[in-house]
């Protein structure tokens, strides 16, 4: 159901931008565009750290700053729509609708699993991560364009909007002395936040109406997640109830843009 909603939103956004650009064309501006893009994203800051610092008997230290800020996020991907209408040669308005996903990589999941194993002093732990950190963002803002030639141009954008983010679901099964001591779960959580994006793209016109854009974007948001934990009667091992760290990333993507107006 969520995917259908997401698809509808993307298509609606695309159609909306398409409709808007019809007016643009009549103005005769040749810099406006709509674009679909996708690429590689690298999480930054504490969110991408994997600290599991323990005391001398293996207990997770809840007062350790690195412990409570670590997010265990790995590299991910960002896809989306972008469009801008240039009301002058150099300046325009536009926006981005993007979807980003950052899974917890195996090496970080293993770090978590080993940490829980030490904290509970048990023979075996099995850690299962379902889902990923995701962000669905709507970011309007201002665009600046500088054409180097008929074919090449550069765009700089500054966007401010909204993101709806989720955390992954982490389940840990504990086994000791041949006895399965059950599983506990850090449930997935959803939080909304203001979001900011700044970026630079280099555009190359393939033909009269199509261009490819190479983008580098920086994204910042700080959603405040309240996290529920299931089946945690024993207060041992990593257990967080709130996660309020910047979710920021660098994104490098390639886009296919439809440009308007006569060349």
């Amino acid at each position: 159901m969520k995917k259908i909603t997401f698809l509808s939103l993307l298509l609606a956004a695309g159609l909306s931008i398409n409709a808007q650009t019809t007016e643009t064309q009549s103005v005769g501006n040749n810099s406006s565009f709509v674009e679909v893009f996708g690429g590689f994203s690298m999480p930054m800051g504490n969110w991408s750290k994997s600290a599991y610092n323990k005391d001398d008997v293996g207990g997770w230290i809840p007062t350790d700053a690195a412990n409570i800020s670590a997010g265990f996020a790995g590299n991910g991907a960002t896809f989306g729509y972008e469009g801008a209408w240039f009301f002058s040669k150099y300046i325009g308005f536009g926006g981005v609708i993007s979807y980003s996903s950052f899974a917890i990589p195996i090496k970080f999941a293993d770090s978590l699993s080993q940490g829980y194993k030490a904290s509970f002093d048990v023979d075996r732990t099995t850690t299962t991560v379902s889902g990923a950190y995701t962000m669905l963002s709507v970011l309007p803002g201002v665009y600046f364009r500088y054409p180097f030639s008929d074919k090449f141009s550069a765009n700089v954008k500054l966007l401010c909007g909204f993101t709806s983010a989720t955390t992954p679901n982490i389940s840990v099964d504990v086994e000791d002395g041949g006895v399965d001591d059950g599983s506990f779960v850090q449930l997935a959580s959803v939080a909304n936040s203001l979001a900011f994006m700044g970026g630079l793209n280099l555009s190359y016109n393939l033909c009269s109406n199509f261009a490819i854009n190479l983008q580098g974007n920086y994204f910042y948001s700080k959603p405040d997640f309240f996290i529920a934990n299931l089946n945690r009667p024993v207060q041992v091992g990593r257990e967080i109830f709130e996660y309020n760290q910047p979710l920021s990333y660098m994104n490098f993507s390639l886009g296919l843009a439809y440009t308007f107006g006569k060349k």
């Binding site: 995917k3 997401f6 698809l7 993307l10 298509l11 695309g14 398409n18 709509v34 679909v36 996708g38 991907a77 896809f79 729509y81 979807y99 996903s101 899974a103 917890i104 195996i106 999941a109 293993d110 978590l112 699993s113 080993q114 829980y116 194993k117 075996r124 732990t125 099995t126 850690t127 299962t128 991560v129 379902s130 889902g131 990923a132 296919l256 439809y258």
Partner: peptide
């Protein structure tokens, strides 16, 4: 452009729906 949009959206959904839970055993 519309077809390209749908194609990329389908790719996104495909990648998302193919993601399986990752399990690590210590």
């Amino acid at each position: 452009a519309g077809l390209a949009s749908i194609a990329i959206t389908a790719t996104v959904l495909g990648i998302t729906s193919c993601s399986k839970p990752e399990t690590v055993v210590s």
